[in-house]
Design a protein around this nucleic acid. Structure first.
Length: 566
DNA sequence: GCCGTCACG
DNA sequence: ACGTACGTGACGGCA
């Protein structure tokens, strides 16, 4: 493996490890990068020499930056550990060594110092070498242990055929990055600044004083103590009454004098959220070398098997409001290219229909019906063509709610209906969709007995709290258990599609690049001449990634920015 | 470092 | 009496 930029450590089959210093600054003799590349390059590029590493994506990117090509990537201990224990918050080498090998590694802190840590290249070579070779040695030992464990748990197929092949794709996506229109964001930030100033002034006047609107404490004090907004029906947080959007809307719905201030607060929040989280931040994250944004796609974070994105998170770019979509318009393809987006239509509901073998739901999807309208039709006992927009909206809430293990309380809160009415909706739903009702009961029984659930492809999530004494805790665990096989299977399938698309693009020699994944959507940067062919290829691979009892449907669009194609 | 809030699927 | 729809990451406030 390639450790820090300062050096390279390699572990051999015999269990010994060597450390090769590169760019070390203590004046001790060191090896030139060019020599390393000549000596190691052929080894790393040889597909018959299997490479084992911890967090290979990181090392792979470092290697590629130095012009080193890697092939024969065989086993990532971080990913192995994640498949075995997806609920662990960390899968760093220290943790893995301790948990799987009962071995306490030399703490990085001890080497670099706790306060004002120095950098690796300034530590005496002897000490760095001991630390670095330990890394390589431990990684190799972990490989042996984890490999057996994956076998025992029947996770080897998922590991070898999905997670390991995916590493290369995430490396490619991260390194490619995405282009943004900085000018557009600059202009937007000035508009937002102006609006924020105006709204701030208006809020101060309505509150009859200046205060920090960002402070929920101060805001709550103003609303509920000074201005005597009614607290009845307002949720509490640990520190006081909640000022979350739903609660502010309840206040505003009282009408009259109570209406304006909460709505202004929400407007303020919307504006500052966009400004601080996206508009000001994204241009600052542009890489000066590439002129693009390089987010991290994390493979060992979520408990369901989804990817996550960070630094910056590109999986939560606004889309629901017009102003939010203004930000999306700043995500653009490379010069001369077009953007292509492909998203699975109703993916999780289709997977639920398949897993639950629910005849009514399967029929609806086989006939390519509007699933929310179809649900409304059954729920409210009206012909599909007579479903009102409000009925459809409610049915949509119920559909998603079912996916999440919804309770009557949650539904009544979200739909603003009585508890009794919410109970009635859920009962009617479960009577109409008996397969789903059976699935929910089966999952509860299963997780109560086994303490885990799994996806269609065998990805497992331990849910030990399903056996908890407290009913409250147990029911929380049940909701996770109901949702995981659905969300997780969706994650498995899109990962397969990503691998197949990547390989297909490579084989056909196309220059198009996959640049983002947003759970059920893939975004591509496409040379104009490849548009037609690539769109067809993407749709084909996504719809056929994994066969279900009903078709998976994918919508593909091309355009000049992310908003246009979404 | 935790909390409340809110952006996304 | 209480309060709960699943999964994330980032920001500002506050201790």
């Amino acid at each position: 493996m390639i450790a820090q930029p300062v050096g390279i450590s390699i572990s051999y089959m015999e269990g010994s490890a060597v450390y090769i210093p590169v760019g070390h600054r203590t004046g001790e003799k060191q090896v030139e990068m060019e020599w390393i590349k000549d000596a190691l390059g052929p080894v790393l590029a040889d597909p018959t020499i299997r490479i084992i590493g911890q967090n290979i994506k990181y090392d792979w990117i470092v290697a590629l930056r130095h012009g080193l090509v890697l092939d024969g990537i065989h086993f990532d201990t971080m990913i192995g550990s994640y498949l075995i224990n997806p609920s662990w918050r960390q899968h760093n080498l220290d943790k893995l060594a301790l948990e799987y090998l009962r071995f306490k590694k030399i703490a990085t802190e001890q080497l670099l110092g706790k306060k004002d840590p120095t950098t690796m290249d300034l530590i005496p070579m002897e000490n760095v070498a001991e630390y670095a070779t330990e890394d390589a040695d431990i990684t190799f030992r972990l490989y042996t242990t984890l490999s057996k464990e994956l076998d025992t748990r029947n996770l080897h197929k998922l590991f070898e055929e999905i997670e390991m092949p995916l590493v290369k794709i995430l490396v490619d996506m991260q390194m490619t990055g995405i282009r943004i229109d900085t000018e557009r964001l600059k202009a937007l930030s000035e508009i937002l600044d102006q609006k924020i100033k105006e709204v701030t002034e208006e809020i101060y006047i309505m509150a009859d004083e200046e205060f920090n609107i960002n402070s929920t404490q101060q805001l709550s004090e103003i609303l509920f103590n000074k201005l005597n907004y009614p607290v009845k029906g307002i949720k509490k947080t640990k520190s006081g009454y909640s000022t979350a959007e739903g609660e502010l809307r309840k206040l505003a719905s009282q009408g009259g004098l109570f209406q304006e201030l909460p709505m202004k607060i929400l407007e303020y929040r919307g504006l500052t959220k966009l400004q601080n989280t996206y508009v000001l931040t994204l241009p600052a994250m542009e890489n000066p070398q590439t002129g693009r944004i390089h987010s991290s796609f994390n493979q060992t974070v979520t408990e369901t098997g989804r990817l996550s994105s960070s630094d910056p998170n590109l999986q939560n770019i606004p889309v629901r409001t017009e102003l939010g979509r203004e930000i999306r318009r700043a995500f653009i393809p490379s010069e001369g290219n077009i953007m292509v987006s492909a998203d699975y239509s109703q993916m999780e509901l289709r997977i639920l229909a398949h897993i639950a073998r629910d005849q009514a739901m399967l029929d609806a999807f086989r006939n390519d019906l509007d699933i929310h309208a179809a649900t409304a039709s059954k729920l409210f006992n009206v012909p599909v063509e007579n479903v009102s927009p409000e009925q459809r909206r409610r049915a949509k809430m119920v559909n998603f709610g079912i996916d999440y293990g919804m309770t009557p309380y949650g539904l009544s809160d979200r739909l603003g209906i009585s508890l009794a009415e919410a109970r009635d909706y859920i009962n009617r739903y479960l009577a109409q969709f008996s397969g789903v009702a059976r699935y929910i009961e089966d999952i509860k029984k299963h997780v109560s007995r086994e303490g885990w659930v799994e996806t269609l492809l065998g990805r497992r999530r331990p849910i030990p709290l399903a056996k908890a004494k407290s009913k409250f805790v147990r029911e929380g665990a049940f909701r996770q258990a109901i949702n995981m096989p659905i969300q997780g299977t969706s994650a498995d399938i899109i990962k397969i599609a990503m691998i197949n698309i990547f390989n297909n693009l490579a084989q056909t020699g196309l220059k198009s690049k996959m640049i983002l994944q947003v759970h059920d959507e893939l975004i591509f940067d496409v040379p104009a001449g490849e548009e037609k062919q690539v769109m067809k290829l993407i749709k084909q691979e996504m719809e056929n990634a994994w066969p279900l009892d009903i078709p998976l449907k994918v919508d593909v669009r091309s355009g000049a920015n992310w908003d246009e194609v979404h």
